[in-house]
Design a protein around this nucleic acid. Structure first.
Lengths: 149, 149
DNA sequence: TAATGTTTAATTGTATACAACCAAATTTAT
DNA sequence: ATAAATTTGGTTGTATACAATTAAACATTA
């Protein structure tokens, strides 16, 4: 018997047998792989995620951004204030519902899309994985994410 | 033509077409799924990762922990100091090489393993995924991680 | 062996994450 | 209408992450 499956009780507590660690580490390393590409635009990775949503939707409330990114106001409020300071987005209360804050693109923020459009392909170039492999991994991660939300 | 593959230039900048976002979100949500289990032991998720390594190896230098977890001293030093304050680990210079700091388990830290040994199965119970699916995902993530390191 | 270079942690500063709490605006129930 | 409950962002405090810099210990070499 030379199984690679964990057998003893304590084997379940070994790092190498966890799902969580490669997920945690791969997420951080992939973010780090974006870093040199985003640095050229003075962007952080979570800010880039906000931009991807705003380039598509032009404006969204903080609540909508939070729902799509699974982030709460404790993270988004200071992040969006930094993006406002850089003149990339505007923050204003919704006149229809003063509780909501609408985040909109400024011309500067909109113009950043042209400089960012190469980032996805540049990043994929760093991964020696076929489109099919990447697509399969995305599908499985989306499935896992659905379990967790 | 009703392809689900991204076609237009801008489609590559949509959140839903990224690999990075489900990875980033699933990692955070999985960490959050651990939270109630770890709270009972007063542990954070990165501290739990350190413990998994120390339960297996009894003692490791900061450098070795950093290599295994892909974390640098800027993260580990304050984290390990907090673990030392809770009397879970000891921190001492290696007499053989005063540059290195050896992190060792205290009796309290060692005893924590008994209370943590149920965590992996409790967490897997939260995921409606078969062992084969989880194993496949771990394999793919490990492969991706290897590309990124 | 003295100067130079390398390794290892620690420190500093910035940016997330997120739980817990708070306040204002809105909605619901009476 | 008005008290109570809910929704929405903001704030506070703690804990990562990580780039950049520093300092001490060790290794190498001229």
């Amino acid at each position: 018997m030379h199984s690679t499956e964990p057998t003893a009780e304590t084997d379940f507590l070994k790092l190498e047998n966890q799902l969580c660690f490669p997920l945690y580490a791969a997420s951080r390393m992939l973010t780090k792989a974006y870093q040199p590409l985003l640095l050229a635009l003075d962007l952080t990775y979570p800010q880039y995620l906000v931009f991807m949503l705003l380039w598509e939707h032009e404006q969204l409330t903080v609540k909508e951004l939070g729902e799509k990114l699974l982030l709460d106001s404790g993270t988004l409020t200071p992040l969006l204030k930094r993006m406002e300071q850089k003149q990339w987005v505007s923050r204003r209360r919704d006149p229809e519902d003063e509780r909501s804050v609408i985040i909109g693109l400024t011309p500067t923020g909109r113009a950043l899309q042209a400089q960012a459009c190469r980032i996805p392909e540049q990043l994929l170039g760093k991964l020696a994985m076929s489109p099919a492999e990447i697509s399969a991994l995305r599908t499985q991660l989306t499935h896992l994410l659905a379990q967790l939300t």
